[in-house]
Design a protein around this nucleic acid. Structure first.
Lengths: 227, 227
DNA sequence: CCTCTTATTTGACCGGAAGTCAGAGAATGA
DNA sequence: TCATTCTCTGACTTCCGGTCAAATAAGAGG
């Protein structure tokens, strides 16, 4: 008597019963290839068969590891999100300057990091803006559960330093930071999402710096400790 | 010698050369049906053939009026966005109470309006979260050009009343209002997008009210006139 | 009212991609 | 070495966006 052909699902992905090192490597390779292709071609543009070919497996194997294209994308999204630094991984001298210095640091640095390796960023972008609502729900839950950018700890850091107000529910503050940082960075980095604020390419660096100043100022007004 | 089979595109949609009333009515009917189906089934779930059938035309005709599924969606999105009230269409007594009263009014009322007719809301939601980047660009431009919710005029209203700070570029303030209002309302109304703040269904009304209070307070901190 | 011309509409058809599954193949245990 | 159990393969099915040649409707001119 056999149990099931494939073991019960492990959170999202199907995991082989005999989880050999070779199979784990395969799964990782599939996700790696998928991430790059999603980044390069967008969700619709990716062909599962092409991902399989490049990962050196047959199409059917991909559907063995992930139960749908959505599932494969979600795995790529999680991998991408986990690959980013958290707020508190800023350099010590920046941390020493406090909460809003860290905010500024990441807004200024993120474009450079993305320039160096835009693949994970692009995949998270697709996940945040270009996925079905069903997928969105899973992404929202993932972000809430894993907090991959460490926003909660970061806000706590700000509170501990007396820089962040405490008269508002901390979860509200965390969400606000998440929302605004996402939008701001997306507008800076991705032309399609910029409502003319940062002028992705054309605008002068001074103007961009000024906008970043103003953004930090707005955020400080919203969540800074009351004086 | 003929000109073209179909006239040059009118912004986004293709418009028949002989634009009879019947054809305009057809086009509107197609958009109307499409909007409802997108709302009910999501972008992927919609079958163009089904839209055509329900609108009483052949599939080919749909591709005569709109050059792709994306184009049809965009038309539905624009129609949906235009159907909403702008900020300054709040009742006079609310307007009299000032900028942040209007903010609060819409956050509190929107769920009711959506409950009455969720179709346009759902379509804008899909456009904001679940479309290709290419479509996103067109949506961003549309929102910037038409400002269908009148955010610019609304912020100016706040400035004129001395309630909104003027030490920050007004476009920055406008974007911030857009961003935060969207996210807040989406979190309230759409479970998939709520990071546990409003608890879409289950949470107590008092808790929700308190969260709304806090949200308005945060917004006031960010963009309220400096005291 | 009829005919000719031009624009529109139709729906069978095409290409291509997600997902399936029966059989081949690899790994494990006796 | 053989038997058993799980995994991998890739041809196949199904479904859908988009095309296009043929049919049809709408003027224009007589």
């Amino acid at each position: 008597m056999t149990v099931s052909q494939t073991a019960p699902r492990n959170g999202r992905d199907r995991v082989p019963v005999r989880a050999t090192a070779r199979q784990l490597a395969r799964q990782e390779e599939i996700v790696r290839v998928a991430m790059r292709q999603f980044a390069e071609r967008g969700y619709e543009g990716v062909r599962i068969e092409e991902v399989a070919r490049e990962a050196g497996v047959a199409k059917g194997a991909v559907f063995g590891y992930f139960d749908s294209k959505d599932g494969l994308f979600l795995a790529a999204y999680r991998e991408a999100a986990r690959s980013f630094s958290s707020y508190l991984e800023a350099p010590p001298e920046v941390l020493a300057d406090g909460f809003f210095a860290v905010i500024r640091y990441w807004i200024e640095q993120t474009p450079h990091f993305i320039h160096e390796d835009w693949v994970p960023y692009r995949v998270t972008l697709l996940g945040n803006y270009c996925s079905s609502l069903q997928l969105r729900r899973e992404i929202t839950q993932f972000l809430l559960q894993e907090d991959p950018y460490g926003t909660q700890a970061f806000v706590q850091f700000g509170i501990d330093r007396g820089e962040v107000r405490t008269d508002i529910d901390v979860r509200m503050v965390v969400s606000l930071v998440d929302w605004l940082m996402d939008r701001c960075q997306d507008a800076i980095v991705t032309e399609e999402l910029d409502p003319g604020l940062f002028g992705s390419a054309a605008q002068s660096p001074q103007m961009r710096d000024q906008r970043v100043d103003q953004f930090v100022e707005l955020l400080r007004g919203a969540i800074g400790a009351r004086s």
